[in-house]
Amino acid sequence: MDLTPLHEVEAPSDLRRRVHRRRRWSVLVISAVLIFAMAFITAQGLRNATLFFRNVDEAVEQRSELGERRFRIQGRVIPSSVKSESGLTTFEIVHNCVVASVLHSSDPPELFSSPWIPVVLEGHWIAGEVMTLGGNDSHYFSSDRMLVKHTNEYASANEQRVTEEPPEGFLDQCSFEVPAAAS
């Protein structure tokens, strides 16, 4: 154990000042590099590299590149398109006015029944003629895993009813009309 009284072994003041100056300098360097790094990360955006999902419009655009590979696709469910038959669910999802037809082969989560709910599906494209709201399409998406992506919007169920209306402004730019739900 060190028994020397500590206050007697303090560094001479000029030495301490020098140490301090060096420290201040290094703190500056640290913060500069940190800021640079953060800026780099945000700017270059790993967002492209860490795609948790592709939106419908991107997935359609990259169809040839994706081929039969598995990926996740995200879009809002069009309420009037949902049909369920012997464990298979078919529906259409839309994002940025691009529509894709989906064939889903497992039980959807409970919140799937909410109109215009955004969902993330895992699966791949399959070639086949389908008719969607957006027109004829040469592929449909075959999915076996569904995640409901809820938004950060919260509203009281006492005040607001569940509406079949699409979210405000979501389909404003689109060339097609969405029919009212069959219910």
Partner: peptide
């Protein structure tokens, strides 16, 4: 980042 942190 770690170089900067390490130097400091």
């Amino acid at each position: 980042v770690h170089t900067a942190l390490g130097l400091g």
